[in-house]
């Protein structure tokens, strides 16, 4: 069995309370858009750390800053202030190229939709990060990655020939192929039916439990969030709650409390 725990450099402790073993740590991260009166505070002074081998769900009502949080944590976007570290590397101050290199070597991504390049086969999609990094990538690497997500027989198919759930599993295989420090998911089950979503969540849970991978997943679905070890809640860009191993109902209640009038939606999500 492969191990996903790898040590890169010195994982020094941030000054915001992150533990030494944190793979991802955000310290006082803020992100604003616009200026003057029209300034939007998407993130306000967020400080949080994710240890190795953990599965964290990030929840919050629409507009709470979930996506911004993910993008800042993953180096897709630069915070206005604060510090982001991944595997001990400080992201602030990295050039766009250095950020890109860091992303493809240490981070895996699974998006809600449009995850795969339609022109490439499943196997080619999986190998793409390695090819972009100029690393030797053979048929066997793709086969191993696809086997792990249960799609070993579909490597030659193009995305259009796969179901939504299968596409998402190819995306997970691609996220894992470079053996990243952390896998980020942005509503990875948002576009899937509940049965398929459960499969995908099971897969993510599996790579955390069996292989020691680290997963950070943004979701609005309490059922999806309940698969995680820990659920953090954002509201108006600020971190408002941090629950360890909460039940579906605890999560749903917290969401209802945060969203107020729109809580019915969250409950509907639970009853699905």
């Amino acid at each position: 069995m492969r191990t996903w725990r790898r040590t890169r450099g010195d994982a020094t402790t941030g000054d915001g309370g992150s533990a030494t073993s944190d793979v991802v740590s955000l310290t006082g991260v803020s992100r604003t858009y616009g200026s003057g009166d029209s300034t939007v505070h998407a993130l306000r002074e967020v400080t949080v750390g994710m240890p190795r081998g953990s599965f964290t769900a990030v929840m919050g009502p629409s507009g709470s800053g979930k996506s911004t949080f993910l993008q800042a944590a993953a180096g897709l976007d630069r915070p206005t202030s604060g510090s982001v570290r991944i595997g001990g590397t400080e992201l602030t101050g990295l050039s766009e190229d250095e950020l890109t290199r860091l992303r493809r070597e240490r981070i895996g991504f699974v998006f809600q939709s449009f995850n795969l390049l339609p022109s490439l086969t499943a196997a080619e999609n999986v190998l793409l990060p390695l090819r972009l990094a100029g690393r030797p990538a053979g048929r066997r690497d793709a086969q191993a990655a696809l086997d792990r997500v249960g799609l070993g027989a579909h490597g030659h198919r193009r995305p259009a020939e796969l179901s939504g759930g299968q596409q998402q599993r190819v995306a997970i295989a691609r996220a894992l192929v470079s053996r990243p420090d952390v896998v980020f998911g942005d509503e990875p089950t948002g576009a899937l039916d509940s049965g398929t979503a459960a499969d995908v969540l099971g897969l993510l849970r599996g790579i955390v439990d069996a292989e020691g991978a680290t997963v950070v997943m943004v979701t609005h679905d309490p059922l999806a969030a309940s698969v995680a070890d820990r659920v953090v809640f954002l509201a108006d860009g600020a971190l408002v709650a941090d629950l360890a191993h909460p039940s579906v109902h605890e999560i749903a209640d917290r969401m209802v409390a945060l969203t107020g009038g729109t809580g019915a939606l969250a409950v509907a999500g639970v009853q699905r």
């Binding site: 992303r103 070597e105 449009f114 390049l117 793409l128």
Partner: peptide, 16 residues
Amino acid sequence: SRELALLRAIGATPRQ
């Protein structure tokens, strides 16, 4: 542009 944005997200440098 969506396709190109995805490529950027999964690790293609601007030069690539």
